[in-house]
């Protein structure tokens, strides 16, 4: 994190929204949900949470952040997420360093997928350490109302139909390039409201 980062202003404590009221147990529930989502790729997993996060974050997205981020995880926020109370919320509750360079981010919070940067600007891992890649948390308007796509790969029994809404036109073409890098590549978790869908790098998606 460099000095002079515009994100590095002191938290405005007045407007700060509360985090988990029972961090140990709520984080455990959220983790199990995202573990299930990444394991059973393509399925919609409900995430029980009472969080009331700052706009534009949905409760599921905020729960993921509070569960996975801390001072060891540089986080990149898109313009929509960087606007408003989210940066202070994440800094205060997670202590996560917010970074401007996409390549340094372990996690990316994308609140407006229509303007998201290309996947290949995030870390894709290294031959010997493919785990050193970014996980993109992408908030979408709906996990079921978008164009139907066929997903195949680890975690899916045969094939399954998934209909994520709100993605940019070239999203799946970019995903095909990302999948072709396997075992390198980024991983994605889609969040909407109080639900998640996992899209690990090993999943092949066709229209």
């Amino acid at each position: 994190m460099s000095d002079g980062n515009p994100m590095l202003t002191a938290p405005d404590m007045e407007g700060l929204k509360p985090g988990f009221s029972e961090p140990v147990f709520e984080a455990q529930v959220a983790f199990r949900t995202v573990l299930n989502a990444m394991s059973y790729a393509g399925r919609v997993h409900a995430l029980e949470t009472k969080l009331d996060p700052p706009a534009p974050l949905d409760p599921a997205m905020a729960a993921l952040a509070l569960t996975l981020f801390d001072f060891d995880t540089p986080v990149w926020l898109d313009a929509a997420a960087a606007d408003g109370g989210t940066p202070d919320f994440l800094r205060f509750h997670c202590g996560a360093p917010l970074v401007a360079a996409l390549g340094e981010a372990r996690f990316a919070v994308v609140a407006d997928p229509s303007k998201m940067p290309p996947f290949d600007r995030f870390a894709i891992g290294e031959d010997r350490y493919p785990d050193r890649s970014a996980t993109l948390l992408i908030q979408v308007p709906s996990l079921t109302g978008g164009p139907a796509m066929a997903w195949r790969g680890p975690g899916i029994d045969g094939a399954t139909t998934v209909a994520i809404a709100g993605l940019p036109a070239d999203f799946w073409a970019q995903w095909a390039d990302n999948h072709a890098l396997y075992p390198l590549g980024v991983d994605v978790v889609f969040a909407a409201g109080r639900a998640l869908v996992g899209l690990p790098r090993g999943i092949q998606v066709e229209g």
């Binding site: 995202v34 573990l35 990444m38 394991s39 996975l68 995880t73 372990r106 493919p130 785990d131 890649s133 996980t135 975690g155 075992p183 991983d187 690990p200 790098r201 090993g202």
Partner: peptide, 9 residues
Amino acid sequence: RALLKAVAI
């Protein structure tokens, strides 16, 4: 975090 990457690869 390590578990999620493990599941992805």
